[in-house]
Simulated scan of single mutants.
Amino acid sequence: MQVIDGIELYHVTAPLPAPFSPSWIPGTVRNTVTFYLVRFITDDGVEGWSGFTGAGRERVGIGHTLADLFLGESPEDIDRLAERIHIMAVGGNFNWWLEPAFWDIKAKNAGLPLYKLLGGSSDRLRLYASSGELRDTGARREEAEARLADGFDTMKIRVHDWDEKVDIEHITDVATHMQGRMKISVDCNQAFRLTAKADAPLWSLDRAKRFADAAADVELAWVEEPLFGEWHEEMAKLTAYSRVPIAGGELHVMGYAELARMIKMRCYNIYQPDAMFTGGVKQSLDVAKLCREEGVKFSSHTWTNGFGFIINAHVFAASGFADEMVFEYPLNEPGWVPEGRDAIIKQPFMHDKGWFNMPQTPGLGFEIDHEQLKKYGKCFFKASRKEVHWMPEALASMT
Rank of each mutant, 00 (worst) to 15 (best):
R124A: 03
N357Q: 14
I7G: 02
L117C: 03
G132N: 06
M88P: 03
A200L: 10
W162E: 04
E99D: 10
K237M: 13
K264D: 13
K116M: 13
E233R: 12
A14R: 05
P201A: 08
D104M: 12
V253Y: 04
S50V: 06
K378P: 00
S74G: 06
D173K: 14
M391G: 00
G51K: 08
V3Q: 15
R210V: 01
M88D: 01
Y10P: 07
L202K: 11
G151S: 09
S121M: 07
M88C: 12
G151P: 12
L259H: 06
K156D: 09
P330C: 13
S300G: 08
L125P: 02
D217K: 10
T34D: 15
G51T: 04
L251K: 06
K374L: 02
Y271E: 00
R210Q: 01
D187Y: 06
I270N: 00
L69M: 05
G138W: 04
L9K: 00
D342S: 05
P201V: 11
S185V: 12
T53F: 13
I78D: 12
A18G: 08
R140N: 08
T53C: 12
F316N: 00
T361P: 04
Q2H: 08
R385G: 03
R80I: 08
I270K: 01
Y36Q: 10
R140T: 13
F20M: 04
G56K: 11
G132K: 07
V186W: 04
L395P: 02
G72W: 07
S185C: 15
G320P: 09
E219Q: 12
H86E: 13
V33M: 07
F35P: 05
P100D: 03
E219W: 01
P330S: 07
C379N: 11
D161I: 04
P245E: 03
K264Y: 14
V186L: 15
W390I: 01
V287H: 14
L220I: 14
N93Y: 07
T399F: 11
T32M: 14
